[in-house]
Nucleic acid binder design. Structure first.
Lengths: 344, 344
DNA sequence: TTTAGCACTCTCCATGTGAGAGTGCTAAAA
DNA sequence: TTTTAGCACTCTCACATGGAGAGTGCTAAA
């Protein structure tokens, strides 16, 4: 596969670079002049012709310049894009924002989505962290009004689930607290299966509560199941290749529609190496909604305790180097923040 | 203002009706044929001419049909649109969905956004309910991991705020429970001001906690401040008048950008009469982002306890009758659901 | 292997033309 | 006084035409 000459790599890189900026097909003569290349346009043309033959470039029409194919982007991301770190002052600014914000996971995730969207000028998504396998840690029941009770479930790893349940009849806060304290004791460190075993020795009220608890815990075992923070959706609409096309709408629907997003994440996220970044280009033949788009994904959090996913969705014509650096940086930053507050 | 003849009202209604369906300017002859009108196209033309003169219709070009102006839509919504209820079976289906869902305010709001978006084929928004003035009801502190503590604050009216705080040093769950129980007792029914008075007699840990509590409570006093559920954003992009235009992007940014949304809601929501529906057409000269859009808003909830806002954002060319009915119905349904679960 | 030169292709834009839709006006009819 | 038929007029839209320009592919020479 890596059968490109240095000159071909150079030209592919330059075409991609310029195309990302202009969204216009790039001509041979333009490249020579713009970069003062030490060769003639005819030579560039020959190389371009070869790259087209190999499937890395495409010609919209016989007499237009070249634009990258999906395969071209893939080669670029895999072999050519330099993994530059973000500039020091950008990193400092972002870090500062996080440390200035409220010390609260939810705020961090919101902020992460916002920063990702701003830095990449594309749509961003961040899923709330949750443990790979849910284990019970603490339960609290709080009467709110009437038969409505707030159930707060804390899992090992710090994941928090809350849900309002409506009881058959009003129960006093004292009773609720007693039930919660009892269950907290007997369920300590159990997973959903373990809790099912306890059901037998429970009264009606406890059974109701445990049903909800098990529901929450088993829901936690899947990917992308909790809250999802989105930002910058409108950034994508500003891209010229999406103006007035169906494609942008379909891509954004992917983010809006929970089931589509779950499908995407559950099928890709598990293959990401720790600390690594996954890049999907043009839907990879699987996701039709992403035909014109690319997605950059990473995991963050503390493996073994709680992890989440974050990423960016933008046009295929995106600045991969910068986006990948940003995603990796935010992912590491979130992981650091989480581990800091979790240190005993 | 109400100086239209019955025939002019009829023609204005028909033009709006047809324009909403076709997004194309409507001609006189078409109207006569389509609706078998008991007059000639020339008569219709004369009336259209008068309506144009009055500012209710517009001609894109000298020799095109007529389309409604913002003023025309306003007259229509204010005087002509019949306030039909939703069909019985639609109402039943929707109600059924709500009663089948988890008995949980959050689920209801999500579902409300989803139903609104589906019914109106436009973007929907639903803000979480919160009390008009925040009053303390219950506090719970739960150790999660390390110095991280989950603070759950329940307000009178059932509004729930949660936040994770990071303490200076680890504190045992027993201590936390004791603090929470003590504060729950002394803060009972106080507003943010009342709690400030307690600060003086508190130790360092309690001060930290109360700071957060007051922050949450004062944030609750504003409109639209809590969670916002959005759905159907991509519906708007499908409308022909938005294909490839800047306008859709700017309108959706209004929903995405919290500060813009807060501004919109805080300036309009307070004027809505109870049970009523507010319709903003074309930004009403104030919101430039909404130039091509209309917004239908209503309040829901239990006045005095907790209320929220819900609504629909779509193209100006929207089916007002149906949208208004839907918004009103969902608003009433949410209110009913809330009052049912809150009955002591 | 690279390059200069050149014919060729295709888009884009400006221009022009005819068909069609819809109007506004006028004068006759109700 | 109101309504209508008739008709000229206007404007858009779709389509065809014709350079200008950009960029290519090929060939033959360096």
């Amino acid at each position: 596969m890596n059968d490109l000459t240095d000159r071909q790599k150079l030209i592919l890189t330059l075409v991609i670079h310029e195309y990302i900026k202009s969204a216009q097909p790039i001509g041979s003569q333009y490249l020579v002049e713009r970069f003062k290349l030490d060769m003639s346009s005819a030579t560039v043309r020959n190389e371009m012709s070869a790259l087209t033959e190999m499937g890395y470039l495409r010609q919209p029409h016989t007499s237009a310049g070249r634009s990258p194919t999906e395969e071209g982007y893939r080669y670029f991301v895999g072999n050519l894009a330099q993994r530059s770190d973000l500039p020091e002052n950008t990193r400092r600014t972002i870090t500062h924002q996080f440390y200035q914000s409220r010390q609260d996971v939810e705020q961090w995730l919101r902020l992460a989505a916002s920063v990702l969207a701003y830095q990449s000028r594309a749509a961003s998504l961040v899923t709330a962290p949750h443990p790979e396998q849910a284990r019970f840690k603490h339960l609290e029941l709080i009467a709110t009004r009437g038969r409505q009770v707030l159930l707060v479930l804390v899992l090992v790893g710090g994941d928090i689930q809350q849900q309002i349940i409506t009881l058959a009849e009003p129960v006093s806060q004292e009773q609720l607290s007693a039930v919660a304290a009892h269950l907290t004791q007997v369920c300590q460190n159990l997973d959903a299966e373990g809790i099912r075993a306890i059901l037998a020795q429970s009264d009606a009220l406890e059974k109701d509560v445990l049903d909800v608890v098990m529901g929450q815990m088993s829901r936690t075992d899947r990917f992308a199941t909790g809250d999802v923070y989105l930002d910058g959706l409108t950034n994508v609409l500003a891209e010229p290749e999406f103006s007035g096309s169906e494609d942008a709408r379909r891509a954004l629907r992917l983010l809006e529609e929970r089931s589509l997003l779950d499908n995407l994440l559950s099928r890709t996220v598990m293959t990401i190496s720790p600390g690594g970044v996954q890049v999907l280009i043009g839907g990879e033949g699987t996701w039709d909604e992403l035909r014109q788009c690319s997605v950059v994904l990473a995991r963050y959090g503390l493996p073994g305790f709680a992890t989440g996913t974050l990423g960016v969705l933008g046009p295929m014509r995106m600045s991969y180097g910068h986006t990948i650096s940003t995603v990796r940086f935010i992912s590491a930053l979130l992981s650091d923040l989480m581990s800091e507050t979790l240190v005993d």
